[in-house]
Amino acid sequence: MKVSGLKCYAYLYLLFLYAPILLLPIFAFNDGTVIAFPLKGVTFEWFGQMWENETLRRALTNSLIIGTSSAVLATILGLFAARATTRYRFPGKGPITALIMLPLVLPEIMVGSSLLIVLLGLGVDLSIVTVILGHALIATPFCIALLSTALGSLDRSLEEAALDLGETKWSTFWLVILPLVMPGIISSLLIGFVISMDEFIIAFFLAGNEPTLPTYIFSQLRFPKAIPMIMALGTCLVVLSVVLLTIAEYFRRSGLARAGLKDTGGFL
């Protein structure tokens, strides 16, 4: 009885979590310029507008470049850190890990504004490169969390066997460890990409004059006329992230299965 009451609550909670996402496509296809009920019929006009928008295309290109680069960078940094913390014991591990994981709780505005001051002080021009540096910083903790699970589940005797059979440290890494943690790496890349595509504040501070998808969306939210198109764009973004996250989850689970582990939780 108690559990079924909780279950009802859980479904209501899911409704609360999904309410905005479920409303999004409704208004993206609604043939009206005002975002309100009653609905006025189906149109594809907003998706067409979106397709023809030059600034939006530029923002999309920038976001794709930033997302891919910061995902790769964060995953590489994450691999080093996850390998170090799961495989080796060394003094100062706690404080070092705390510093690296700090962006998880540090407000993004702190990261954005402090990086801005340093970059301007050094005379660095703001561009998508500076956004990549910031995004990699905040995505790294999430990548470490994912990769630590993947690396922590490695059987150390496999590595020792490879070394005994005459492989070097590097070839062991390439031939044994990397293939085993590949699913973890793929889900880490996807999560890094999703985080970067969605991040607003750091891009707002560090992108200079270059638009990214979130800064473009933010600039358009002031204009009521632009809203239906933003709803259409939002729908596309939601579909994209759900697809990418599903793939990431698939790889995360297959990685766990490959290591013969029980699944204990999601990403985060």
Partner: peptide
């Protein structure tokens, strides 16, 4: 899932 989908939107 909702946590990872467009924060601004």
């Amino acid at each position: 899932i909702p946590f990872w989908t467009s924060y601004l939107v």
